[in-house]
């Protein structure tokens, strides 16, 4: 894991940089593999139990493998009243997985999120951090089609 070493080197000296390093690991692997957590804990001289406590505190950090595209559906009140449930339904049907799951081809993972701050365009999803708003079933299908195309 050379990429991991690069991350360690970049953040090791940053005071309190462990969470930044977690972000970097996640950008690379879509989640935080056990091996990476152990390596980072050692590099930051944070005991493993504490490092795990930190990683498992934040909902943006995942300790289980995820797909290439992480689709997060906002379920906070403003999105909820504007039809987040409909978006969930469409996504689950289109991808044939349930919330929290990853497609067998490892392409998509479905997760809930709380408000992502795009509330003038409710309901909202983000795909790898990129927000998509004013969603309808049709629009969701269109977006998925874009991501499904081999790039």
């Amino acid at each position: 894991m050379d990429k991991l070493q690069a991350i360690v080197d970049q953040y090791q000296k940053v005071p309190g940089g462990l969470i930044e390093a977690f972000h970097a690991v996640q950008d690379e692997y879509a989640y935080i593999p056990e091996e990476a957590l152990r390596r980072l804990a050692k590099a930051f001289e944070v005991p493993l139990a504490r490092a795990y406590g930190i990683a498992s505190f934040y909902s943006y950090l995942s300790l289980k493998p995820r797909g290439q595209y992480i689709i997060r559906i906002c379920k906070s009140a403003p999105c909820h009243v504007k039809g987040a449930a409909e978006v969930v339904k469409t996504l689950e049907e289109e991808l044939a997985i349930r919330m929290g799951e990853t497609t067998p081809d490892q392409l998509f993972t479905l997760e809930f999120t709380e408000c992502v701050g795009v509330c003038a365009e409710t309901p909202v999803i983000t795909i790898n951090g990129e927000p998509y708003g004013d969603l309808t079933s049709a629009k969701v299908k269109e977006i998925l089609a874009q991501y499904r195309q081999p790039q």
């Binding site: 005991p47 493993l48 139990a49 504490r50 795990y52 406590g53 498992s56 505190f57």
Partner: peptide, 9 residues
């Protein structure tokens, strides 16, 4: 020893 820690939130 740090065997124990917190998990999740």
């Amino acid at each position: 020893v740090n065997a124990l820690g917190l998990r999740a939130r």
